[in-house]
């Protein structure tokens, strides 16, 4: 049996809601500018388009942050995306800072194992976070997040790295919905067509690394998370058991990335536990 298709997306409605979200959520805090990292991929290109619609191109700073091993195509596409949106693009090489960290970590420089590559990838992602938060202070702009719902649920991102942001307009859109909305908002075709990649090393693609396609996993996650299908209903819908179980494990194992740190409770009211206030308190 063929597995179900990925979730649909009412693109006009999503664009309207997300534009209003960015506009109001910045204005509430008396802020009118935004800073975001532009990777040359579709997620950040979409956030850029939304940011420009919400705040105007002159209020948005895009920052491309290549590392030595990043594909030159990534920077080209980031430039194309910034040009299409009509915003300033700052290029900040993270090679020197990431290499300094790598050099300072015993044995890491020559470590080409999967674990070593992962550590270096996380270092680069965190260097980019540092650059963005520094520009955020310099510009007086909020850091807009670019993690989509698929990545957040799978934990396919670096905690305190690319997962860090002040507000995230696309965190409730699956990757396939990000692509649909990007098409609708006119993100350059070359960016939409490019296979998604964390661009940590030559030839890396997400789907190859994950072992399944975004369409497949989006269909599964949508039924499991949004429609609350139990395991047996997912199998009945046509998903292979091994796939269902593997994704369920990934989601569970990465829960820590989606939550603030656990605080040991001693008092009556503990931050994040039973001291409960909305982030939009009083704004």
């Amino acid at each position: 049996m063929a597995a179900p298709p990925p979730p649909g997306c009412n693109v006009e409605l999503a664009a309207r809601v997300l534009t209003a979200f960015l506009r109001q959520e910045t204005a509430k805090f008396g802020i009118e500018r935004a800073v975001l990292g532009l990777s040359g991929g579709v997620d950040s290109a979409l956030v850029l388009e939304l940011a420009v619609r919400a705040l105007g191109p002159e209020k948005v700073l895009a920052v491309a942050m290549p590392y030595r091993s990043s594909s030159p195509l990534s920077l080209e596409l980031a430039q194309a995306s910034a040009e299409h949106a009509g915003v300033r693009l700052e290029v900040v090489e993270v090679t020197a800072m990431a290499d300094a960290f790598i050099a300072a970590a015993p044995g890491l420089a020559g470590d080409d194992s999967a674990a070593g590559r992962l550590r270096k990838g996380n270092l680069m992602a965190r260097c980019r976070m540092i650059v963005l938060y520094d520009r955020s202070a310099a510009e007086g702009g909020l850091v807009f997040g670019t993690s989509n719902k698929t990545e957040l649920l799978l934990g396919y991102g670096t905690i305190h790295g690319d997962m860090a942001s002040a507000i995230n307009p696309i965190g409730d859109l699956y990757k396939s919905q990000v692509v649909a909305l990007s098409r609708h908002l006119g993100v350059p075709q070359a960016i939409i067509d490019r296979p998604p990649s964390a661009d940590l090393w030559e030839g890396q693609t997400d789907e190859q690394e994950l072992g399944f396609s975004y369409d497949e996993v989006d269909a599964l996650l949508h039924l499991q998370v949004d429609r609350r299908y139990p395991r047996e209903a997912l199998l009945e819908a046509g998903f292979p058991a091994a796939f269902v179980d593997r994704v369920a494990r990934m989601v569970r194992a990465s829960q820590y990335k989606r939550r603030p740190p656990v605080i040991a409770k001693l008092a009556n009211r503990t931050v994040n536990l039973d001291y409960r206030y909305a982030r939009d308190w009083g704004v």
Binding site: P7, G8, C9, N10, L13, A14, V17, Q177, H222, D226
Partner: peptide, 12 residues
Amino acid sequence: PARGVDTDGPEL
């Protein structure tokens, strides 16, 4: 609160 943009309908 608004919920549901994953449908093909014209609205939430």
